[in-house]
Design a protein around this nucleic acid. Sequence first.
RNA 1: UUAGGUACAUAUGA
Length: 311
Amino acid sequence: KKDLTVLMTQLGNHSLVREAERLFEQVGDADIVLYTSLMKMYSRSGDLRAVERCLQRIIAEGMEPDLIVYNTLIDAYGKHGTIAKATRAVSEMLARGLRPDVWTYSTLINLYARHRLLTKVRSCFDEMTERGVIPNITTYNTLIHAFTSSKDLTAAEVAYEQLQDAGLRPNVWTYSSMMKVYLLKQDVDSVRSCFRNMLQQRVRPNIIAYNTLIDALGQARLIEEMEAALLEMRANDVNADAYTYTTLLKVYASVGRISSMEETLQEMREQGATPNLVTWNTLLATYGSLNDVDRVRDTLAEMRADRVRPD
RNA sequence: UUAGGUACAUAUGA
């Protein structure tokens, strides 16, 4: 039961969801924790109706939905539903005497950010602090991302300062987010120093931090340094993923190094990374911009042979 | 059982 609980929170893949459902029914006496992870699984697979059914079942079986159940529900509405539904879930939660916590507010901030409602993002943060709920590092990371996606890079930098003033320590998510901010400002020096700062603070860069660094160096046309970063990443036992390779393909294409791009695609397959839709689109766009119709045709055929559906 | 459940970051084109 414990294992299934953990497993389900990591699933979103449709065939595995069906498998997990079977196991769930076999377990029988599901508790609220198992139900919550089932909700998250459905949320990840985008099945909002199934998420709602979980809540109904929890109630039908005489259990009291707790704060975590509602936080999961609100997040599901934020990702796949409407703000109105999320707001209703908050009211329902309050009616049950549950108090929104730092997770609830961070979820709501993220929800408003996804809907590009920057004013609501700010008012939600203010409401949180007024009610004595202390923002944590994830709250600030969410804010930084919210400001970044609405192109208010200055606000993102202010939030970064504020989190440190509040005595919080940036984590790898924070550093990656700030590297993206500097990348968008085309300030590769700041990207580099942010990465170094992360190392200095003994925060271990993960694949996302490296990918962001590689993208920034590539966009600055610092090809040698980008390749050095890739080597350093591997030396630290971080394996390149589809994002890494797609970024490399894009960078080589942008500097007209088509053969390097093709070698990289080859290497990608040798390393067992699977080209995805974005990878194929990047290749198609490259050959398309070169008016290389034959290559476009070949690439499209390869893509289909790989069972990737063009969008 | 001092166990298991919820929020945040990276690549393409429109």
